[in-house]
Design a protein around this nucleic acid. Structure first.
Length: 284
DNA sequence: AGTGTATCCTGCAGGC
DNA sequence: TGCCTGCAGGATACAC
């Protein structure tokens, strides 16, 4: 569920509550949320101090005085700071890991348990960090770079955008929205995207992610920020979840198709399909 | 190598 | 009411 804007919103809410706190002990309620045995995990985090709270791709990153906790929220994961501010968020319903702090506690709550909590040493974290593509809201992400790499791929653009090694933090909602903003059919092969279209896609990705961060993310069903509040960007989506509703640009009906086992939403008029044959004809 | 599919898990909505 | 199917914001292990 959470993509870059949702993880970023959560991080911004957690930061003031968590920086400077120490982890007294961790309790693992659902061991399948870890990648190591619970005992090993507990040993790695016990007694550590939280120096900083950040985000990389869709992950919440707790920088410790010795090591790093990386939390992948999966589809339904969120972090509840309890006893750390004036108001508590709603009570977690499916706690997977609880960090008992010197003051209060932090609960990783995850209904579907697709999330993952890891305790890495600095070297392991550097390795992991290097597997992610550029952060789309930083200068490391440029239109030229996007074009050069996308143009070499035969993947559908939507699928390419979901690959965290290509661009960090983009998920299904914002991939669909960015394609709409750029006028690119989500199933078009990367190789068919022109330099101008890649520039528009770059602007679309940045625009939609930036606006969604400002709006506190998108709540379709489960997403909650650190206060337990919903994300308001759901009201500003152009195509995602809007099957059969009028396109905000041309009034035609938004369509839904499935590929890569996931729904893609698009406007058939604003985002015409260009397949290999059409691409060949256009190139000649 | 690079793409596409199936799968992990739970909850909910809709059809009958 | 209850049972069934399909669907969900992610990531990855496989098949080709």
């Amino acid at each position: 569920m959470p993509e870059l804007p949702e993880a970023e919103t959560l991080v911004r809410g957690l930061r003031p509550a968590l920086v400077g706190r120490s982890i007294v002990q961790a309790r693992v309620h659902k061991p399948d949320i870890l990648r190591v045995r619970p005992r090993r995990f507990r040993d790695r985090v016990r007694g550590r101090r939280i120096e900083a709270v950040g985000r990389r791709a869709k992950n919440v990153v707790l920088l410790l005085d010795d090591g790093v906790i990386v939390i992948n929220l999966g589809m339904t994961g969120w972090l509840a700071p309890l006893g750390l501010g004036p108001h508590d968020p709603p009570r977690p319903t499916h706690p997977a890991v609880t960090f008992r702090l010197d003051t209060g506690r932090l609960v990783f709550d995850d209904v579907r348990r697709f999330g993952c909590v890891e305790a890495l040493d600095p070297g392991e974290w550097a390795e992991r960090d290097a597997t992610f593509g550029p952060e789309p809201l930083t200068d490391a992400f440029t239109p030229d770079d996007l074009f050069e790499r996308l143009h070499r791929s035969r993947s559908p653009v939507r699928s390419w955008l979901l690959d965290q090694r290509k661009v960090a933090g983009v998920g299904n909602i914002y991939a669909c929205e960015a394609c709409f903003r750029a006028g690119i059919h989500p199933a078009r092969r990367g190789v068919t995207v022109t330099r101008d279209e890649a520039t528009a896609l770059h602007a679309g990705i940045r625009g939609v992610l930036g606006a969604a961060v400002e709006a506190g993310g998108t709540t379709i069903r489960d997403y909650r920020n650190a206060d337990g509040a919903s994300g308001e960007f759901v009201h500003r989506l152009d195509v995602y979840g809007r099957e059969e509703q009028p396109c905000h640009r041309c009034d035609d009906a938004v369509e839904r198709i499935v590929f890569g086992n996931r729904s893609a939403f698009f406007c058939p008029s604003c985002q015409p399909m260009i397949d290999d044959a059409a691409w060949a004809a256009r190139a000649s």
